[in-house]
């Protein structure tokens, strides 16, 4: 039995819900009230994750925190097609890791700016936004050139990987931290593709795409 320590408005938790839904895995969601109760700092939760961060996944008696790590685990264990975390292709696997790390940088910038505006956190919002824009420029350029060679996804190949899921939420929620995506057309086109992955689900602030042609 899989339990996800979960908070609806968290983009990092949404990554996991998204992958679970795409892989068609049943799970139990245990809500941790991040705001305003700050339950993730409560002693009972810190016993589960000393970092006091969401999400955390429990699969029977195995416990894992960090959204990127959780996706690596879920895809390795439950994706029979072996496409979301391509273990057999060293180069693609290397690229997946690169973009998972990049996704965590997006959390530390775009998500932080959103926490300042929506959850009254005390970060330097100006610096967070500038850093998010720097990262978005890099990703937009990467996706533009990928698309020029006929690839829709962050990691070159015919199908999406957990790198796409990892980068998606806080990019799509960026406007809640006053980070416009107007200057990133390749990112916006890529997000249409992510939204059309079978099994895609939404969270508050993220909308579905229309039908492809």
């Amino acid at each position: 039995m899989i339990t996800l320590y979960d908070y609806e408005l968290s983009g990092n938790c949404y990554k996991i819900r998204l992958l679970l839904s795409i892989l068609g895995i049943k799970y139990h969601s245990h809500t941790v009230e991040f705001y305003p109760a700050a339950e993730h700092k409560a002693p009972w939760f810190r016993q589960i994750n000393p970092l006091g961060q969401l999400p955390v996944l429990q699969d029977d008696d195995y416990t894992l925190c960090d959204s990127q790590a959780i996706m690596v685990y879920l895809a390795s264990r439950y994706d029979s097609g072996n496409s979301w975390y391509p273990r057999d292709d060293p180069q693609r696997l290397g690229s997946v890791s690169r973009w998972l790390a990049f996704a965590d940088s997006i959390t530390n910038s775009a998500s932080s700016a959103r926490l300042v505006e929506g959850f009254f956190y005390d970060f330097d919002a100006v610096a967070c936004r500038a850093e998010a824009h720097r990262l978005f420029r890099i990703l937009d350029e990467h996706l533009w050139f990928n698309a020029k060679s006929g690839h829709h996804w962050i990691v070159t190949g015919d199908s999406p990987t957990i790198a796409d899921i990892a980068c998606f939420p806080y990019i799509m929620l960026s406007e809640e931290g006053s980070i416009s995506r107007q200057d990133y057309p390749a990112i916006r086109r890529w997000s249409d593709h992510v939204k059309r992955i079978p099994g895609f689900t939404v969270m508050p602030g993220i909308f579905p795409a229309g039908p492809a042609q």
Partner: peptide, 21 residues
């Protein structure tokens, strides 16, 4: 306001001219 290639089928492009979105 965009390149022709920016306007993929079934996509909505976000543009701006002279401050008007």
């Amino acid at each position: 306001v965009a390149t022709s290639d920016d306007l993929r089928m079934r996509h909505v492009y976000h543009g701006q001219i002279l401050g008007r979105e």
